[in-house]
Every structure is written in structure tokens, then in C-alpha cells.
Design a protein around this nucleic acid. Structure first.
Lengths: 194, 194
DNA sequence: GTCTATATGAAGATAGAC
DNA sequence: GTCTATCTTCATATAGAC
């Protein structure tokens, strides 16, 4: 944050609290479905006070996306540390779907849903949200390259990303964990056969 | 429309015009992103006048969904007439993705995007939008049964539906027809191998 | 069935005392 | 950095003359 001159310890905490609450609300209710009042209430700050930290709602979204980027980067580093084998790493990605079953069924994929929403309502902001997809596309492509699939790495990454998005959407629409589990099994077999 | 006592020829036309314009706007901008003013302007009727035809915006959405159901049913009937072979029919479904390339890249899948939006913002209305998915799931499952895959017909239908949704979302987010084309090629091979 | 005027409420945003 | 009061805008929705 180079353009934020200085902020007290308390200020940083409040700011972080606002972002965390907004992230949760944006995920569960969508960006358009979340009002300033909702965020203010969840974060326990006063109405006008939020403007001390963010000039606009869009700015909050940018901060939320930046936070998600950090979270996912940390997750990918963890996968890399635990699994030296690229195929095992790809499997981790697939297993994430199973691990997040509950949230996926209830609210859909946190990356896919925000991109879908912004793609229609706010194409200007969708450019920022796309970074979350880029993050996984690049990481997956790296694993495919490590598997000796240089030529198709990008396509394979998009393929796997698409499969994950497709099953997340269907499972969410039907509120059905079984649909998710069956597709995850298919994806495990797909990774295994690589 | 059993509860609509009677409506003049002109009235029916105006009503149909409102629904058609709303369908287009809901698809391109989303339900929440489309205001009454937008619909009124596109349909060329006067502001307060629209309430003569629909009591609420939600009612317009229901009418739009009903119209889409009719459209898709007609499409499926056409596929059935042109293709006696179930595998050829499944291929038609896949080819639809290629045929709609332009719209899919620009606005995403008309079924998936409305369900994704309503799933967060208006779960009450999402129940109606899900009927569009049911329509394709059932039609696809019927083809798989005809192929002698009774036991897996439902799973296979969800699988294909998910693949179509996944690629639509990715292609939309990246505004990239090439992603769509590559995945469609993969799906053609998948259907071929059935 | 057509058209104008307006009510009502919610949301984003601001001002300014403390 | 905290808190209250308020402004503006835009959305859905309604009333009622013609």
C-alpha cells in the first residue's frame, strides 16, 4: 500500500476487519446484494466511518480481491511445499473442491461467482476479479509443464479450471453435494490418467 | 395464462414486446442490472404503463423464464426431428455451444448466468430459473438412456451440463472464443467416444 | 389501454462536530 | 479516529386524468 501514508495500529485493524467482513458478505450475497449498511453492521463500525477507510464501495471490492489473491497464493505455496510431484499438486487442486463441498453447494465458487456477477453488472471491475482466475490458471499450467506437457499446458489449465467451475455451478444451482462428489471422482481419474 | 381474464390483440402484443425486451436485457445486463426504466425504454411503452401488464419486476422475470422454456423446448423438438440417433442429438447440444460462440463469449450462458445471479441475490426466484436446467438435464438424460446408459443417464447429463457451463463461464470471463472452441472440440470427442 | 406526475424507500456518499 | 445527521440519486411502485 504505497499510497496510504500512515495508519495507526488500531486503524489497520479496523480496515482489515472491514475487508474480512466484506469478503464474507460479497461471497455469500454477491457484490450488488451487499449494501454499505450490511458491511458496516457486520464490521461493527459506524455508518459514515467506513469512508475514512474506503472512498467507495468499489475500493472495498478491490481490497477484498487483493486479500483473496494473498490467501490463494499462500494456499498454493502450501501445496507446493507438501507435494513435490506435479501430479500430486494437481490432485490437491481437485481435492480442494471436495474439501469446500459445503460452501460450494451453498454459495458457489468464490472466484467464479464474483467474476460472473461483475462480468454483467460491472465489466470494468471484472478485470480485477479475473486476476483470481489468472492465479490458478498460471499455477495449474506450471504443473502441466512440469509434467512434460509444455505445448498443451495452457489449454489443460483452462480445461481443469472450466471443469471445476462447471461442477461448482451445477452443484450450487441444485444445492446437491452428490453432484459435486461424482464429478470430483471423475476429475480424480482424469488427473490420475495424465 | 388462466388468470388473465382477457386481453385485446394490441395488449397481447405489448405484453409480448415487454417480455422480449426484458429477456434480452436480463441476459445482457443481468436481472439486478436491468431497471424498469431500461425495459420501458427498450419496449417503447410509457413508464407507469408497464404496471398494467406486470405488477412487479419479479413477475416479468417469471414471464421471461417461461418464454425461454418455450424457446428451448422448440429447439429440442427440432433436434429430435432432425436427428433420430441419440448420439447425434447429443452432438447437437455440443454444437449449440459453437453456434452461440459470440453470445457466450460476450454474455455467458443465458441459463447459467441467470441461475448464478439469482442463486445469490434472490434464492426465492432461483427456483424458477432452475427449470431451465431441468429442461436440458432431462432431455440429455433421455438421450443417454436411449444409448443404453440407463444407470448413469442422470450423472452423464449433469456431467455434460457442467462441462458446458464451465467452458461458457471461462470463455466469458476471458472474452476468448479460442477457449470455447478448444473445449468444444474436446466435448465432440467425448460424445463420439460414448 | 395511454400518459403524466409523484410517492416511497434504499443505497451510496458527504459534512462536520467531537 | 469516532460518531450523528443529512444529501443526492435512482430504483420500484402508485394514483389518477384522459
Amino acid at each position: 500500500m504505497p499510497d496510504k501514508p500512515a495508519m495507526s495500529r488500531k486503524g489497520e485493524q479496523t480496515r482489515a476487519e472491514i475487508i474480512a467482513c466484506a469478503q464474507d458478505l460479497f461471497y455469500r450475497r454477491g457484490y450488488g446484494g451487499t449494501s454499505f449498511s450490511d458491511i458496516v453492521e457486520a464490521a461493527g463500525v459506524y455508518r459514515g466511518n467506513i469512508y475514512h477507510y474506503f472512498k467507495t464501495k468499489d475500493e472495498i471490492l478491490e481490497a477484498v480481491i487483493a486479500r483473496r489473491v494473498q490467501e490463494f497464493r499462500a494456499l498454493q505455496r502450501e501445496w507446493e511445499e507438501r507435494c513435490p510431484d506435479p501430479k500430486q499438486r494437481l490432485m490437491r487442486f481437485v481435492e480442494m473442491l471436495a474439501a469446500c463441498e459445503d460452501d460450494l453447494v451453498r454459495f458457489g465458487c468464490p472466484i467464479g461467482t464474483i467474476n460472473a456477477e461483475l462480468g454483467k453488472a460491472r465489466r470494468d471491475l471484472q478485470g480485477s476479479a479475473k486476476a483470481l482466475f489468472d492465479l490458478f490458471r498460471d499455477w495449474l499450467a506450471t504443473q502441466f509443464v512440469a509434467l512434460g506437457r509444455e505445448a498443451q499446458a495452457q489449454s489443460l489449465a483452462f480445461h481443469l479450471l472450466g471443469r471445476a467451475q462447471g461442477v461448482s455451478l451445477i452443484a450450487h444451482v441444485y444445492h446437491d453435494p452428490a453432484v459435486l462428489q461424482r464429478e470430483v471422482a471423475t476429475l480424480r481419474a482424469w488427473v490420475d490418467a495424465l
